[in-house]
């Protein structure tokens, strides 16, 4: 059951990501990104991270992507023209991406015994477990991150403010 769901939503995720690249209309691309993020949430859920799954949908699919679609709607961006791409992209980009992918696969496969593992369907982290780690064991990194976000918010306010 879990494996079937994993295959369905993993496939949906990859299909959405590919569709995001091949769509020519920005709004379709944005919607494909929403599909990717929502199916990622289902994958989190299958790995037992229920809070993360809900937060993924609320924050990414619900809030951030709404802003994306908003901007696209307001700019009324039309269909993009397809160009043939630069030579550099073909010469450097594709081998570079392939090399990066191969390196990551190699690292993950060779260190998989030392990395912590989560298997599909039998590992449930409750919200209270998560908050215990976040607010007690990792309190300092958490607070530092929130200060960083606060600085970013203030920066955005300063940049968006009208000059008097």
């Amino acid at each position: 059951m879990h494996l079937v769901l994993f295959i369905i939503f993993g496939g949906l995720c990859v299909a959405g990501a590919l569709n995001l690249l091949f769509q020519r209309h920005p709004i379709n691309a944005a919607l494909s990104l929403i599909v990717v993020m929502s199916s990622l949430a289902v994958l989190y859920l299958l790995l037992g991270a229920e809070f993360l799954a809900a937060a993924q949908v609320i924050v990414y699919s619900g809030a951030i992507m709404v802003l994306f679609t908003f901007v696209i709607m307001l700019l009324n961006a039309g269909r993009e023209d397809r160009t043939h791409g630069s030579k550099a992209a073909y010469l450097v980009g594709i081998p570079g991406a392939a090399a990066l992918f191969a390196t990551l696969v190699y690292i993950f496969l060779s260190y998989r015994t030392q990395l912590g593992g989560a298997s599909i369907g039998n590992y449930l982290v409750t919200t209270s477990d998560l908050s215990r780690v976040l607010f007690r064991d990792l309190l300092l990194p958490f607070e530092v991150t929130s200060v960083l976000i606060l600085v970013a918010v203030l920066g955005a306010v300063v940049l968006a403010r009208k000059e008097h």
């Binding site: 929502s38 229920e50 809070f51 809900a54 949908v57 699919s61 619900g62 409750t126 919200t127």
Partner: peptide, 19 residues
């Protein structure tokens, strides 16, 4: 377990209908 969060999540997806 996280019924309340799921309700919020569904609510935040519903915006796309109107938008």
């Amino acid at each position: 377990n996280i019924g309340l969060l799921i309700l919020l999540a569904i609510g935040s997806i519903g915006v796309y209908g109107t938008a």
